[in-house]
Computed example of a mutant assay.
Amino acid sequence: MKSILCFGDSITWGYNPKDATRLPPEHRWPRILGEALGPEFEIIEEGLNGRTLAVEDSLRPDRGGLAKLPFLLESHAPLDAVIIMLGTNDCAPCYHLTIGEIALACARLIMTVKQSLAGPGGAAPTIMLISPPHMGELEPTIGLFYDGGQKLCTELAEPYRLVAESLGTAYLDAASVAVPDEPDGIHLGPEGQRKLALAVKDVIAPLL
């Protein structure tokens, strides 16, 4: 059996844009991915609300992905693949990040996986980087945190692609296949989750 770690934020966790609950497993993209790939694949869902690529926040502690990823790689090894989809939270204006800083954080995460020896036989797992969906019209409460970050979010796809290409990593632009649901403007509903899962499957399956 091959194992895939899906490392992400609230979209991977399955945050429901309708009522802020958690979507049932069958409506979350990692579970749908597993069903599409077949029974010979084990999917490890590692989504966390508010997770960033690397930045730490005293108001929402332990959300920096770079600090937590090494432990997860070791915990779940051996891993055949690691899929990283982060960046939405990094666009929040309170973090004051540039495109370059976000791209560098992506590169750091990829290198962490490459150097982890967490794959079968101590090799590096296959890696896939996903740039997040664009933000839509934000619900007022969510807008308190994210409003002003919409433009930065729309600019992530090309830097992510360049990072993935330079480091020999598979890549998908989630904004090309899925859009956030109303009313919150950030998270994917069941249909968006399904579209994302099937697009991920088309990229990752040939590599495994």
Rank of each mutant, 00 (worst) to 15 (best):
K2S: 14
S3Q: 15
I4G: 14
I4D: 14
L5T: 15
G8K: 14
D9E: 15
D9R: 10
D9N: 15
S10H: 13
W13G: 00
G14M: 15
N16V: 14
P17G: 12
P17S: 13
P17C: 14
T21L: 11
L23W: 11
P24I: 09
P25V: 06
E26C: 03
H27D: 13
H27C: 10
R28P: 08
R28D: 10
P30K: 08
P30I: 09
R31N: 11
I32M: 10
I32K: 04
L33Q: 09
L33P: 08
G34E: 07
G34M: 05
E35D: 11
A36Q: 07
E40K: 10
E40R: 09
F41C: 06
I43H: 00
I44M: 08
N49C: 11
R51W: 04
L53Q: 01
D57C: 00
L59D: 02
R60I: 02
D62T: 02
D62A: 05
R63H: 04
R63I: 01
G65I: 03
G65R: 08
K68L: 14
F71K: 05
L73G: 02
E74V: 00
E74N: 04
S75I: 03
S75N: 03
A77P: 07
L79K: 02
I83Y: 07
I84N: 03
I84Q: 10
G87P: 05
D90C: 06
C91V: 01
C91W: 02
A92H: 01
C94I: 03
C94F: 01
L97E: 07
L97W: 01
E101Q: 11
A103D: 06
A105Y: 02
A105R: 07
A105C: 04
R108G: 00
L109S: 09
V113F: 11
K114R: 15
S116M: 09
L117E: 09
A118C: 11
G119Q: 12
P120R: 14
P120W: 10
G122T: 03
S131R: 04
P132R: 05
L138D: 01
I142T: 07
L144N: 02
L144C: 05
F145K: 00
D147Y: 00
G148K: 01
G148E: 04
G149S: 06
C153F: 02
C153M: 11
T154M: 08
T154F: 05
T154Y: 06
E155Q: 11
E158S: 06
R161P: 04
R161N: 11
L162T: 07
L162V: 04
V163K: 03
E165Q: 15
T169W: 10
T169R: 12
Y171Q: 14
D173L: 09
A174W: 04
A175M: 08
S176M: 10
S176V: 06
S176G: 12
V177D: 04
A178S: 14
A178G: 10
D181S: 15
E182K: 15
E182Y: 14
P183E: 07
P183G: 08
D184P: 07
D184F: 04
D184A: 01
I186M: 03
P190C: 12
P190Q: 08
E191S: 11
E191F: 02
G192M: 10
Q193L: 04
A197S: 08
A199K: 11
V200R: 08
K201R: 09
V203R: 13
V203M: 10
I204E: 08
A205T: 10
A205Q: 15
P206L: 14
L207W: 14
L207T: 15
